[in-house]
Design a protein around this nucleic acid. Structure first.
Length: 670
DNA sequence: ACGGATGCAGGCATA
DNA sequence: CTGCATCCGT
């Protein structure tokens, strides 16, 4: 298919800054892909001087794949297609010395950060979960806004803010001691470095001559700053975004960055893609009308040349179980009547917890399904354990990893012993692992405990040595796994044999990835253990391994996770006040973002769209009777069939037929 | 002092 | 329903 004029314009505008406002389903991935091809083939840009940045690994993989298909693999060698975070990691790794970091640094995920925060605020916060979560997101906000602990403290108005700023300082200090950085640092550190160090800035500006950024409305302040620093004076770049699909302000995204661009780059060329190739007319109309309730920076009206399609529907369940049953009945009906395969249906919901009921119903009806997101592979305890072993191997200062595995599997080292090690570490100003290996520990522990600790340190040392020198790090890891008896431990500690089997399977899957990464393959260089561990921490696997088998399965995911995807038939479930818009968003006056979320959901649908809700819903202990979501009332009612209304129409039609009132029947059908 | 078991509390944003 | 705390047995 040929590109339309607007798309062509977007592809061919290569001098100076370009903003592509790409509505949902307007073919933006295609534009980015074609543009990369154009730059390489027509404009003589070497692939290694082009970088395309996305937000998710999935998007990055897909884009790499599609550029490869368009151009042929040999042309894409050296091309950088990665997420912001991976790009940040690349820069950090090349600049470790300038950043005063030791190689082999650990990447803390949210859980690791949380654990650390909890530990170092113990006296003040006493493990208060809500406060800790608040603190964690506050620190994240500060980092995304590029504020140091000192600046945060200076800005603090109330004593509470001052306390949080103080915790922020403590946190940073401890991260440094652990030779660890968190996800926000992956952007912040490169940004600060490029800002202050001219040499580094020049190096990276010379590395990338052209920059493309996808989902630009999701960038936060430090990401935007990084973009600006990377493109420099030359300002040759293309960003693609849609302010109507900005749904991540809660993690620091600044959709204003779209407008800011025009101010910072007066020469900015703005191109709108408004033709939608995805959805039937009715669906698009509904989406347009809904989003008109929001204020806009750039006016944009999507149109479609596709058929108008069937009406949108609203169906009810008595309660959430019944809601799920009705959705499933509809899927089954359409599968048999219209031969629609399962994979063409998607169930979209606001919160992960909503998935449970639907999962249950799908299982009991033996309908295959695939759930994206939710409890991910890397959140599983067994994976976190193994990852902690790996992290400690490459970074002996990683105290969080040490604490996780010092007694997993159980080897007789309890909290008391760990505390003693902690005391010593504190006195000597070293990490826990180093303290555990210290002479002085012998006099402070009982003989049995000391021996257990020695045993642990001993095999870790040996494993680390084999990983460093030996060509075969992989087999060292397998031996380590054997030695600690992890498989046996899983069978002892799991609630059932099948759970243990599952967990062991996961561990093996992880080991397989590592082995492959260490070995390398056709389009991937062999990695050091250090690099492999970092990649795993970013959940950034090279090959397509972690794509699970995709049979004919109903798709389940959150509205957030659905962005960028499309499905022939969509169910948006739980369309109720309190769920969508979510109660806390209503309370905080953040309904506009919820509306965008609804907009994202609606524009995923290609052919049919059904909204569902429950009349009664269990919440915590009690039962509530939710109101229909305000968004349903904002949709064009002519294109929306409410169930009762449909039933009423049906009844009237029936009556008319029975009484032979031909005219009335005709009227009803209009 | 460690580790397993049992009982109770609070819990749902969204990657 | 899950995760943590506490208690008790070894």
């Amino acid at each position: 298919m040929l590109l339309n004029p607007r798309q062509q314009e977007a592809v061919k505008a290569i001098e100076g800054p370009v903003l592509v406002l790409a509505g949902a389903g307007s073919g933006k991935t295609r534009v980015i892909t074609e543009k990369i091809a154009h730059l390489i083939q027509r404009c003589g840009y070497p692939a290694r001087h082009i970088a395309a940045v996305t937000f998710t690994n999935k998007a990055a993989r897909e884009m790499k794949e599609r550029v490869g298909q368009t151009l042929g693999r040999q042309y894409t060698r050296g091309l950088t297609v990665s997420t912001f975070h991976t790009l940040g990691l690349t820069i950090i790794r090349k600049e470790v010395t300038k950043l005063n970091m030791k190689p082999g640094f650990s990447l803390f995920d949210d859980q690791d950060s949380f654990a650390l925060l909890k530990a170092l605020t113990e006296p003040e916060l006493d493990g208060d979960k809500t406060l800790l979560k608040l603190l964690q997101s506050q620190i994240s906000n500060w980092k995304n806004a590029m504020l140091s602990p000192e600046q945060a403290l200076a800005q603090a108005q109330q004593p509470d803010d001052q306390m949080f700023a103080e915790f922020y300082r403590r946190y940073q200090q401890n991260m440094k001691a652990c030779n660890a950085i968190d996800f926000d640092d992956l952007i912040l550190l490169p940004t600060l470095l490029l800002k202050t160090d001219e040499q580094s800035r020049t190096r990276w500006q010379n590395k990338f001559h052209y920059l493309l950024v996808d989902e630009y409305q999701d960038t936060n302040t430090s990401q935007y700053e990084l973009v600006r620093l990377l493109v420099g004076e030359r300002a040759n770049f293309t960003v693609v975004g849609d302010d109507d699909q900005s749904i991540y302000s809660w993690r620091g995204a600044q959709p204003q960055n779209l407008a800011l661009l025009q101010k910072d780059f007066p020469k900015l060329k703005v191109i709108k893609l408004e033709q939608n190739y995805r959805s039937h007319g009715r669906i698009l109309k509904a989406a347009n009308i809904l989003i008109e309730n929001n204020p806009h920076v750039f006016d944009k009206k999507l149109f479609s040349e596709m058929e108008y399609g069937v009406p949108l529907r609203v169906i009810y369940g008595r309660n959430e179980e019944h809601e799920a049953e009705r959705v499933i009945a509809e899927i089954v009906r359409r599968r048999f009547l219209e031969r629609t395969p399962y994979h063409q249906f998607a169930l979209l919901y606001r919160g992960n917890h909503q998935a449970r009921v639907f999962e249950k119903a799908l299982i009991s009806n033996r309908i295959p399904y695939r759930m994206t997101g939710g409890q991910s592979f890397f959140a599983r305890a067994e994976i976190k354990d193994i990852m902690a072993y790996l992290r400690l191997l490459v970074n002996p200062s990683d105290d969080t990893a040490f604490i996780r595995i010092i007694n997993t599997p159980k080897r007789g080292i309890g909290p008391h012993t760990v505390e003693r090690i902690g005391d010593l570490a504190h006195e000597l100003h070293v990490g826990l692992y180093e303290a555990a290996d210290h002479q002085a520990l012998k006099t402070r522990l009982g003989a049995r405990e000391y021996q257990s600790v020695q045993y642990f340190v001993d095999f870790m040392k040996r494993a680390a040595r084999r990983c460093d020198h030996g060509a075969d790090a992989a087999s060292a890891l397998f031996d380590l796994l054997k030695l600690i008896g992890y498989e046996e431990w899983l069978y002892e500690s799991s609630p059932s044999v099948s759970a243990a089997e599952m967990r062991w399977k996961n561990v093996n899957e992880l080991m397989r990835w590592i082995t492959e990464m260490l070995k390398g393959d056709d389009d991937a260089e062999p990695l050091t253990l250090e690099q492999a561990v970092a990649k795993l921490c970013l959940r950034d696997m090279l090959s397509r391994n972690e794509e699970e088998e995709q049979g004919d399965q109903v798709q389940l995911m959150t509205l957030h996770a659905s962005k960028g995807l499309e499905f022939p038939h969509v169910f948006m479930v739980g369309m109720e006040e309190g769920l969508l818009p979510h109660q806390s968003s209503i309370d905080e006056g953040m309904v506009e973002e919820e509306r965008r979320l609804a907009y994202v959901g609606i524009t995923r649908a290609q052919q049919s769209l059904i909204f569902t809700m429950a009349r009664e819903r269990r919440q915590y202990g009690d039962v509530i009777r939710p109101e229909p979501s305000r968004f349903l009332y904002e949709l064009p009612q002519d294109d929306l069939e409410w169930e009762e209304q449909a039933k009423a129409n049906e009844a009237a039609r029936e009556n008319a037929r029975a009484s032979g009132l031909e005219l009335l029947r005709k009227a009803m059908e209009d």
